[in-house]
Design a protein around this nucleic acid. Sequence first.
DNA 1: CGCCCTTTTGAAGAAAATCAAGGGCAGTGG
DNA 2: CCACTGCCCTTGATTTTCTTCAAAAGGGCG
Lengths: 236, 236
Amino acid sequence: MPLQPMLRKLATLVELSSADTDTILSLPYSVTDVRHHRDILAVGERPTFVYVVLSGWAARYSLRVDGSRRITGLMLPGDFCGIHAVTDAPMDHAIGAVTDCEVAKINKKAVEQAVQASPVLGKALWRAKLIDEAILRKWLLNSQDASQAMSHLLCELFERARMAGLTEGNRFYVPLTQEGLGDLLGITSIHTNRVLRRLQEDELLDYAGKEYFIPDVAALRHACAFSPEYLHQYTS
Amino acid sequence: MPLQPMLRKLATLVELSSADTDTILSLPYSVTDVRHHRDILAVGERPTFVYVVLSGWAARYSLRVDGSRRITGLMLPGDFCGIHAVTDAPMDHAIGAVTDCEVAKINKKAVEQAVQASPVLGKALWRAKLIDEAILRKWLLNSQDASQAMSHLLCELFERARMAGLTEGNRFYVPLTQEGLGDLLGITSIHTNRVLRRLQEDELLDYAGKEYFIPDVAALRHACAFSPEYLHQYTS
DNA sequence: CGCCCTTTTGAAGAAAATCAAGGGCAGTGG
DNA sequence: CCACTGCCCTTGATTTTCTTCAAAAGGGCG
């Protein structure tokens, strides 16, 4: 069942009855393959679908006048975008595939009907949006100090990858170059490199290529005051 | 009618029928006065109301371990917060009054019922949230260069103040100290001062105390690539 | 093997923080 | 009325952080 990653994600947001699960699994969808660096949604486009990442990573990003890029959001398997479709508004930023991705397109009307049938689904969409917003606030909050921002980002990505079932112990894969990480934090790739090496020296982090390893999660979290609650505002 | 600012705001988001207006005006609410620097919602609190700012400015903020503050959102008259209430999640940040404020508290259940009665209201709430998110993305995007960030912020505030009916020509009032502006941009008050003076020298901006004047809106906008679409993703 | 992309390191320069201090202005109280 | 106080704005000097420029060293893949 291809929509499995979405179900997994939704299950972290709300408690799904088997009826809700049925509603979701009966959603009509089509799966598209998107090659890395290709856009899933372009600036100015008015999405008529809700998009769910099934495999791979995608990112919200904007380009500046000088050509530099800033990533303003990341989507891991199970994450969706284009909920935005409810508003008929044009995209003020783009969403691009970071790696080759499988993406499910679900018709906006079908989503609206599903929300009618399973109100808890509407609640889940709200929660997902609020988490997106909470993440943006954290990124803004941590943007003062590159080292702290990096540590916090890695804590966040580790946690999100873990929730998506993409970790092995304290090891995980981040399919971004150091330049990509820089675009996330708003620093140059050179500075990204130095910050990473520093964390490695301090034994808060280890990495080889795009494989990352956190020797001591508590220590890394402590270094950047990371507290995971904002990622799953799930309490019911 | 005290809820006037909220109506005005909603009218920028969706087209309200007179029935919708009636639904909104019949919402039960109570008005509270909040003194400046007091919290409307504290960290950890689980809001059971939706709060609407009727007069004054409020801000979302977080405190860092070192005591410094970062403002991650601003609320002008008509703006609401605590929509968040739908999720029962505890606040991961605080909302405080920037100036003395009048705030309306509307019971969460009443809001849910109003959304049932006037679905367009639900759409408006979604739009408002999406605009909050778009603003956060812009702040992140512009956080690279203090001068550009400041110009962009002032363009945004002018536009938002204008939509709320708080401007006189190109003149408007920003009830924040330079330290407050610094907390918005993530820079020190000293640097804030230098950036403002620079804009003044360049004749992109004039100010005296908290009164700001933009001699040439197009010029200021051009300097920071400001384009207002993200503020009112209103197209229907 | 050779090429391209990415990582790594060095050195110089710009942007912003920090440290330090003076000045204006409004409110308060003698 | 004036001195005092607190808050905010302003400016200068110094230090830290990050960028820019430059170049070398891996690493995967045709």
